[in-house]
Simulated scan of single mutants.
Amino acid sequence: MAKNKTTETTASVADFLNSVTDETKRKDSFRLVEIMEEQTGFKAKMWGPAIVGFGSYHYKYDSGREGDAPLAGFSPRKAEISLYLYQDFEEKQKLLVNFGKHKTGKGCIYIKKLQDIDETVLRQLIASSVNYMNNKYPA
């Protein structure tokens, strides 16, 4: 069984975020930490070398693969910030209508900067993600 590459580490979130060279992305990342800590009730932790995660859940797939992952998180990538927020498809679509400038991928929402999005909707997405994952993967 393959080992999950993205696991919680003891690396410093502040050191990681301070290494982000783009000033706007760095400031936005520190602001995202504040927002996500408020919304999830969990302190920021590093997951792997580049994901800032909040809380965790344990998953087990039908294939037998299992592991732990953050309930919510983000990563300041070179092109944009990846938000790791999970909802059922309909809930996500409803919330994203008023979210602002973004793109979506399989499991991510991509934004260029916080200024482009509605912080109230972001907070709703985070709360919805934590609720969804706690229901899907009860402790």
Rank of each mutant, 00 (worst) to 15 (best):
V52N: 00
N98F: 06
F99E: 09
K43S: 11
L114R: 05
S19A: 11
F99A: 00
K5V: 08
N134A: 10
S128R: 13
A11R: 01
E119S: 14
T7P: 05
K45C: 06
G55T: 03
L95A: 09
R31G: 03
K103H: 07
I81K: 06
T10C: 10
D68W: 08
Y137W: 15
E90A: 05
G64I: 03
L125E: 10
G73V: 01
D15C: 11
Q93G: 09
K113N: 14
S19Q: 04
S82R: 14
G48E: 03
I111Y: 02
I111S: 08
E8Y: 01
Q124P: 10
T7F: 07
H58A: 08
T24K: 06
G100F: 02
T7R: 10
L122R: 05
K25M: 10
T24E: 08
A2G: 14
F99P: 08
S19C: 00
A69Y: 04
N4T: 15
R65N: 12
E37I: 07
N18F: 14
A50G: 00
V13Q: 09
V33R: 01
A139L: 12
K5T: 10
K60S: 09
P138N: 09
T40Q: 08
M36F: 05
D22N: 15
K106D: 14
V20L: 02
P76N: 10
M46D: 04
G48A: 04
E119T: 12
K136A: 14
K60E: 09
V130F: 08
I51D: 01
D88Y: 11
F54T: 05
F99N: 06
G48L: 02
G55M: 02
V20S: 02
V52Q: 00
K60Y: 10
R77L: 12
F89V: 13
A139H: 10
P138M: 11
A139Y: 07
K45R: 15
N135W: 03
I117W: 06
F99Q: 02
I51A: 02
D118V: 08
S63R: 10
M46F: 03
Y57K: 06
S129P: 06
F42D: 05
S12H: 05
D88I: 13
T120A: 08
F74G: 00
E38R: 09
D88K: 13
A79V: 13
P49M: 02
E37V: 13
L85E: 11
D118W: 07
G53V: 03
K45Q: 04
I81E: 01
T7C: 11
D118F: 07
S19W: 03
T9M: 06
L83D: 03
R77D: 13
L114V: 03
D22P: 11
S29K: 09
K45F: 00
E80Q: 12
G41R: 12
K94V: 03
S82D: 14
V13W: 10
G53D: 01
W47H: 07
Y86M: 02
V33A: 03
N18L: 12
P76H: 04
V13P: 07
I117P: 00
N18R: 08
M36D: 04
K112Q: 09
Y110F: 10
K3P: 07
M46G: 00
Y57A: 08
P70Q: 13
F30T: 05
S56I: 00
V121A: 15
S12M: 08
I117E: 00
